[in-house]
Design a protein around this nucleic acid. Sequence first.
DNA 1: CTGAGTGCAAACGCTTTGCAAGTCA
DNA 2: TGACTTGCAAAGCGTTTGCACTCAG
Lengths: 156, 156
Amino acid sequence: MRHTPRWRKFGRMISIETRTQELTGALRRAGVRITRQRAALLAVVAAAKDHPDAVELHRRAHEKVPGISLSTVYRTLTELESQGVIHRHQFEGEAARFEHAKTAHHDHMIDVDTGAVVEFHSERIEKLQAEIAAALGYDIVHHRLELYVRRKRAAD
Amino acid sequence: MRHTPRWRKFGRMISIETRTQELTGALRRAGVRITRQRAALLAVVAAAKDHPDAVELHRRAHEKVPGISLSTVYRTLTELESQGVIHRHQFEGEAARFEHAKTAHHDHMIDVDTGAVVEFHSERIEKLQAEIAAALGYDIVHHRLELYVRRKRAAD
DNA sequence: CTGAGTGCAAACGCTTTGCAAGTCA
DNA sequence: TGACTTGCAAAGCGTTTGCACTCAG
């Protein structure tokens, strides 16, 4: 009758801790102190499977460390971003959202109805972008590709 | 000794006037009044060959109608946008920029050093985007592709 | 110990909005 | 005329910052 096997739960937890340590290490290497507040936030960011904004991250961190302020959340996120361990995304008409820079580069599809974000990657698109820039005499520093989408409906 | 042939100048002016009329028509059809201020702004938007922000458009319109306020600029731009005759672009870390919805859809390259914008279009990229969205069960409502670039330098 | 980090509130930059006065149709 | 539009100033929003206090190392 157990619907969530213990090994699976445990497996997830280990991976989150690993991620948390990555974030912690990045900050320590940058010479910043790991305070109670930051530790809580790092754990929250590491655990996030979605793309939360600063207010949402603050809400989650607040459950662990009631005293944490929104300023500290922003300050720490900015620091993490400049260390390159998280990414900041500015989708249309929304507050910035953050995500752990876990995997390789990817782009985003945003469901305009639900706000849900789906990640995708296309080597062919990347290549075409580079070709276009090169043809016009430029190198790409970075790029942003966002698809604002709506679920297909089977024959209305 | 005339370096700017009259026919060329005149050709440009006609096209700007045509564009101005397109904008004016769109507003009139939407049932809004064409005031002195709006007429000036429409002419400025129609004449713009770059991608100016609200403050810059205000500055340009201000030369024609000294009284025009920034609020009016924003209000009119918002109206034009909702009529679909201009587009609003929110590039990274900048105020929104506007452009006349003159031609077919295109994407943007932003020179990170100068802020200059180059327009481009790739049918192949568009197609790949649609395929990717479709494969995941979505239809694209709209998309945003921005390349932040830097001029190539011939062998430093 | 002591300088980096904190919470708070105030400031920020861009944009929108409430309102009384002005103006276009 | 009378509804729509304006300019102004104030508010809104997400984010950053100055400050005196606190705490991690």
